[in-house]
Simulated assay, not measured.
Amino acid sequence: MSGTPINLNRARKARDKVKKRAQADENAVKFGRTKAEKSKDTAERDKATRKLDQHRRDT
């Protein structure tokens, strides 16, 4: 054994924090998109909506 006692609560919390950070990094790679990508998708969606509305017939 090592000579110094350790705080088990602190060790458990540190271990959980590392696990949560790893999970967050994995989710960021899997689901994350940059702000530029989000704004580009929004602009494309708005453009498609405007184009569709321009082709509507008035009743």
Rank of each mutant, 00 (worst) to 15 (best):
N27I: 03
A28G: 00
R56N: 06
E44P: 00
R50W: 02
R12M: 04
R21D: 11
K13D: 07
T59Q: 10
S2N: 12
S39M: 14
L8T: 11
G32T: 01
N9V: 15
R12W: 05
R12I: 09
R45D: 02
G3N: 10
D53Q: 13
R50T: 09
N7I: 05
L8P: 03
V18G: 05
K30Q: 12
L52N: 01
T4C: 12
D46Q: 15
T49C: 08
A14F: 03
T4M: 09
D16E: 11
T59M: 06
A48M: 08
K38M: 09
F31G: 00
T49R: 13
V29P: 02
V18Y: 08
A11Y: 10
M1T: 05
R15G: 05
A14Q: 08
T49A: 06
V29H: 02
N7L: 10
Q54D: 06
V18I: 14
A22W: 12
D53H: 10
R10L: 08
T34D: 03
R50F: 05
T59H: 08
N27D: 11
K47E: 04
K35E: 05
D46A: 14
K30S: 07
K20N: 13
K20T: 10
S2A: 14
R12F: 08
D53T: 07
K40Y: 09
T34N: 04
K30E: 08
R15F: 07
A48R: 15
R57N: 10
K13A: 14
Q54T: 01
P5H: 09
N27C: 07
A14N: 05
G32K: 02
K40R: 13
L52K: 01
T49Y: 10
M1R: 11
E44S: 00
D25R: 15
K38P: 06
Q23G: 01
L52I: 02
N9C: 10
R45K: 14
A28C: 00
R33L: 07
R50Q: 10
